[in-house]
Design a protein around this nucleic acid. Structure first.
Lengths: 233, 233
DNA sequence: AAAAAAATGTGTAAGATTGACACGTTTCCA
DNA sequence: TGGAAACGTGTCAATCTTACACATTTTTTT
């Protein structure tokens, strides 16, 4: 037996949602679609799954082809399958997401590929059901960040506590108390003082920290109860 | 244009993981597979997605056909896509899960369909990558139950606090303090005293509660910080 | 029939955590 | 040079958590 006696094989797509953080707000990586339908409109990085590749490999291939980004850890979040979600033909799409710190070398690669970082707050509508995918991805990010120290993935190797706070404020769209945030984060023991100061910032230089990789790995799988109290709707 | 110029359409399956709770331990609903390959071995409830149905509808159709269970709320958890996960041909499978209270009428329907409730602790190996799917589903359950009052879905309409505690102990595989658990649960305000006692239990009869449906719906989307502290691995 | 055992329900006190602030320090800029 | 802006540390009351003691109800044992 080489095939199931069934006729309804379906086109399987992959779409990638990449979040970045520039120190002020969360950005979404998108691309201008270069084939019909919806040619020229904003789209997530997408493509079709090949017969001989795993889902994650497909996501990484598509990401590299469309943006030049390599070695990105992608994580599957859900599969979109509404019958009419693609007007051309029935297509289900497995959606992946990734968090990256926006670095200069990445910026060049990305721009060379006609991709762009858009502000999550002020982004234009995307094609098909991609806005819905992004909404689900934000929800997923909020879930994960509430339970795991995942926020660091969005920051450069060295970062300040105020930047980290801005990140969490952007994720949950809340205002946090500077003093209490600092205390809570430091009490996790995940941060190591580099001894250096941030020379980017305008007034008093903030201390640059980096992740204690050892503790980070150990603590990652356990809950860490970091979430703003009022709830995230 | 009615089709994309691509040749690699793929078979899309759906598999359903149904958890139940009998007051002592968590059960998994499985079925003896009645077609090749792996005919006669334990399997999740599965089938192929039809061309004209949404994913959720497919899951509910398959569940009804194989077990007689109706009006079950299913929730997608992930999509399994390893190249060689099905030996017959490349198949990706969208995995759904649902929580149900094991009721007597369901038991009959289920048995009539050759399906069985197996103890999650002592279950035999399942076919293909179904064991992996179950492991992911447990993880998903732990996540959700840590943040949302989802546990009630696994209980009958009226239940006692000690039963609820047993459920949480089964989900997280921990021991909880009776007194503290009771206080924490009652403080949520989600439980309403029915005034009745559980006549099933052996020694002192425990009070039967039921969910305050109004508050349940309101509170559902917000975090509720219920999780055992040591972490869940 | 009384005593022991098992399970449930209520209370309490020490310790830890949180939330809301005060106050001092460093750096930039007018 | 003085003030504004951003950062860092400290305090304290209120709340929540943890670890128990003790009383009550029902079943089982002797």
């Amino acid at each position: 037996m080489n095939r199931y006696p069934i006729e309804n094989r379906i086109l399987v797509a992959i779409d990638c949602i990449i979040f970045g953080f520039d120190g002020e707000e969360i950005k979404l990586l998108v691309i201008k679609r270069n084939f019909e339908p919806e040619k020229g409109n904003w789209s997530l990085m997408g493509g079709f799954l090949h017969h001989n590749e795993d889902l994650e490999d497909g996501a990484e291939r598509i990401l590299y082809d469309l943006t030049g980004l390599k070695n990105i850890y992608v994580e599957q979040i859900f599969t979109a399958g509404r019958i009419e979600r693609d007007p051309v033909e029935r297509t289900i799409s497995v959606v992946f997401f990734a968090l990256i710190g926006i670095r200069d070398q990445d910026k060049e690669a990305v721009n060379a590929h006609n991709a762009h970082w858009l502000s999550l707050e002020r982004k234009p509508p995307l094609i098909f059901d991609h806005d819905d995918m992004v909404a689900k991805a934000i929800e997923h990010l909020r879930y994960k960040a509430a339970l795991h120290p995942i926020g660091f993935e969005l920051l450069p190797e060295r970062f300040t506590i105020p930047k980290l706070q801005k990140l969490y404020e952007a994720i949950y769209n809340v205002q946090l108390d500077r003093r209490n945030f600092s205390r809570k984060i430091l009490s996790t023991g995940l941060l190591m003082d580099t001894g250096e100061k941030d020379d980017q910032s305008s007034t008093k230089k903030a201390t640059l920290y980096r992740l204690d990789q050892e503790k980070y790995k150990n603590k990652f799988s356990s809950f860490w109860h970091f979430m703003p109290h009022p709830g995230i709707e």
